[in-house]
Design a protein around this nucleic acid. Sequence first.
DNA 1: GCCACTGTTAGCAT
DNA 2: CATGCTAACAGTGG
Length: 291
Amino acid sequence: MPELPEIETIVRDLSPKIRGLTIESFKLLFPPLLKNEDLCLLHKIRGKRIIDLSRMGKMILVNCQDDLSLLFHLKMTGRLILCSRTAPLDKHTHFLLRFKSQKSELRFRDIRKFGFLRCLRTSEAYLIKELRLLGPEPLEIDSSSFDKLFRGRKARIKGLLLDQRFIAGIGNIYADEILFRALIHPSTSVSQLDSRQRKRLWKATRVVLNKAIKSRGTSIQSYADSQGRRGSFQNFLLVYGREGLSCRVCGERIKRFRLSGRSTFFCPCCQEFKKHKDHEDKRGRQNKKCL
DNA sequence: GCCACTGTTAGCAT
DNA sequence: CATGCTAACAGTGG
């Protein structure tokens, strides 16, 4: 569940709360959570101070003293929770961090166990496969660099938006919302997109992700922040999860199909596959009127 | 009980 | 290489 806006929310909340704290101890309750051979490095984090937290795509990087970092990926059901040390541990808590002279601790919970933890040398972060292969940040890339990403590509646009090597942080919900706002059908091959559509896509990406961050993310089934609070962007979704309901823009029934194995929602009128030209023309006329 | 579904992505096949 | 399916897991709802 957690995509860029949810991870960003967690990082912004958590960072001021645990920055500066010293790690006293940890417990790895489900050892397979830790990927690769990071265990001996993990032991070294005891006694280190937390410098800051950052987000890279959908991952959370906890930067500690002495060139050590923890990298978390929440995948679908992972959660980072800041709670009291005395709160009962449930069976889905796989890792926890205790801090010196603090009553609170940080817990990693993950029902489906897809998530992972890595411990690495901060200076070697770029060597870590999960980070090295990560595409550009959608809120940082400028319009012309975004444009260049499409060169020589011909996959369907939604598949590319979901590909973390192409662009980082976008998942199923936001891919659908972005494509709706950009008036682009999810199955469109990117080789078919003209520069105006690519510009619209870039803009829609920024608008959707920024709005979602303002709403503190989308809580549909299980997403909650580090204090267990839900986001509110589910109240503003225009297509995701709205199969059969009427489009909030044109009233047409929202359709659903499977694309790249993922549930995909779109408005057959606003995002009509073969009628991009119509939208262009309408928009063009509107722009002319404005001028 | 069984089956279909779920917001991710690595790994494999094409 | 680029692209597309599926499995990994556990829970929920029909």
